[in-house]
Design a protein around this nucleic acid. Structure first.
Lengths: 203, 203
DNA sequence: TTGAGAAGTAAACGATTGCTGACTTATTAT
DNA sequence: ATAATAAGTCAGCAATCGTTTACTTCTCAA
């Protein structure tokens, strides 16, 4: 839509490397799937942007859905890792969250990973995978932020915070709403702090 | 995906009524577009569910994008109306917002309207329409909730609340995350109250 | 150096997409 | 009752989708 230039354009001639090509395909596909959605993304677009032939997608991932599943698994790892680095319960949780949301250069993988989490392929098994991950994710969030003995609604509040984060990333990246779309980490610090404080039980 | 049974199945034989058929098509299309996205929805599905022939879509809306635009305009009105009925600044804003979010029967049009707001068709003009509407919407939100003289970041906070609402609706409806997905209005009341209080300036 | 297997390409396949023009059927004014 | 017109259907178009098959080209061990 906006500036989806071929970020991953490979060097004019590169040595044949199946693992590298596979990873290139995943990287390109993740961007497109996250930004445009599953159905709107074409395997030919992905292959072209990665600089390889379309047939390799079927060869390496057996289908478009297989490629999407691979992207989703990568997104799982990225989001999980990012969430562990920025764990609730620590002192400056809100500050680091604000930096992750606002700083356009830092940790773009986690943002596209978050966007991938709300994209559907139509395959029921994949949807179930995503559901499980989302639930585990929010449980960790609630556990890391709550008291040792958790209250009843803590999980609900953690899921609402997760939903808020997803919504913010989505309105920033796909809708480009201003001024939210171009707000920096420092602009986001105060409201994000209030948001976190409101939805997560005090530590 | 889940239970998309033909809600709008027309009576076995109905009198020919262009206006009614047009509206049926819009109603069906809005559901599908909001739930599955633009690209994943086919015009044949829409026509079948509405009980008419595919050609009528081209006749009444000239194209699939035209139908989507009509749906989006309808969503604008619904969301705007719903936002006016549940205006911030009033005493029980959070309570009514929680009821709108949680009560599955009440005001389904506003929820699907919200989901439509984050769906893209690829058409740049439509994206611009949506952007304008979102901006106007958040401005009204900030104006209704803020002091007469608004602070600098009020608009940003209003947009973050809007993003949070969108994220909650999305995770509830498309991802079906539990327990958020099946939380009732009373379950949502407390966290929503805290959420609103955190992001909107006190009146 | 060379040949066997991997890595990548080209072209086309059946299916499906959005859309259209010719057709049929129902409604209404006279 | 009947012609005129609107409402709706039908069949098929051209384009594009995901996928596959047959082929070429590169790479590296023997």
């Amino acid at each position: 839509m906006t500036n989806c230039e071929d970020v991953l354009v490979t060097s004019p001639k590169r040595r044949r490397d199946a693992a590298q090509t596979r990873q290139d395909l995943i990287d390109v596909a993740r961007q497109r799937f996250a930004h445009d959605g599953y159905a709107a993304t074409t395997v030919r677009e992905i292959a072209d942007q990665a600089g390889v032939n379309v047939a390799l997608i079927s060869r390496y991932f057996s289908s478009k859905e297989g490629l999407f599943e691979a992207c989703l698994n990568g997104a799982f790892t990225d989001v999980r890792r990012g969430a562990e680095e920025t764990s609730p319960g620590t002192e400056d949780f809100a500050a680091r969250l604000a930096r992750r949301l606002g700083d356009p250069a830092s940790d773009d993988r986690m943002r596209t990973g978050l966007l991938l989490l709300i994209r559907t392929s139509g395959d029921e098994r994949i949807d179930q995978m995503r559901g499980e991950f989302l639930r585990t994710m929010s449980e960790k969030m609630a556990a890391g932020a709550g008291h040792p003995v958790r209250a009843e609604g803590d999980l609900l509040r953690a899921q609402m915070l997760l939903a808020a984060i997803v919504g913010i990333v989505m309105l920033r990246n796909t809708a480009g709403m201003q001024p939210l779309g171009s707000a920096g980490a420092d602009d986001l610090l105060e409201p994000v702090t209030d948001l976190v404080a409101a939805l997560l039980p005090r530590v």
